[in-house]
Amino acid sequence: MAWRCSGRTNAELISNLYKAQLITAERVRASMTSVDRAHYAPAAAYEDSPQPIGYSATISAPHMHASACQSLLLFMPENKGAKVLDIGSGSGYLTHVMANLVCGSEGKGEGKVVGIDHIPQLTELALSNMRKSEEGRRLLDNGRVEFVTGDGRKGYAEGGPYDAIHVGAAAAEIHDKLIDQLRAPGRMFIPVEDEDGRGSMFGSQYIWVVDKDADGKVTRKRDMGVRYVLLTDAPK
Rank of each mutant, 00 (worst) to 15 (best):
K154P: 04
K154F: 12
L74P: 11
V35R: 08
T149F: 01
G109H: 08
Q181N: 10
R198G: 04
A43K: 11
A169D: 02
S105M: 07
V113R: 02
R220V: 09
A172I: 04
G107Y: 08
S105D: 08
Q181P: 10
P191V: 01
E78I: 01
R198L: 12
A25E: 15
P62N: 08
D151V: 01
K217Q: 14
T149C: 14
V84S: 06
S128Y: 11
T149N: 11
S49Y: 11
Q121L: 12
A11Q: 15
G186P: 00
D86M: 01
Q51W: 00
D151W: 04
R8S: 14
V192D: 04
G115V: 01
S67G: 03
S204V: 14
M224L: 14
T219N: 10
G92A: 05
D194V: 06
C69G: 13
C103N: 09
L139F: 07
I174P: 01
S89P: 04
N79Y: 04
E78Q: 13
A172S: 13
P52T: 07
S91L: 07
Y55E: 14
T33M: 12
Y46I: 00
I23C: 06
T95S: 05
Q21G: 07
I179V: 15
V218I: 14
N129H: 10
A157F: 12
I165A: 06
V229W: 11
F147T: 09
I59E: 06
D48P: 01
R198H: 10
S49A: 15
E110M: 14
Q70P: 02
R8V: 08
E193Y: 10
W208D: 04
R37H: 09
G160M: 10
H175S: 09
Q121A: 14
S60T: 13
K83F: 00
S128V: 11
A57L: 08
A164W: 10
G168D: 07
T219R: 13
T58P: 07
Y162S: 00
T123E: 09
A184L: 00
A38G: 15
A2Y: 13
C5W: 12
Y156F: 12
E173W: 08
I14V: 14
R37W: 08
S133A: 10
K221H: 13
R183E: 14
N100G: 03
L182G: 04
S60E: 05
G90M: 06
L127W: 12
A25G: 09
S89Q: 03
W208Q: 02
N79H: 10
A41K: 02
I116Q: 10
T9L: 01
M64F: 10
L122F: 09
R144M: 03
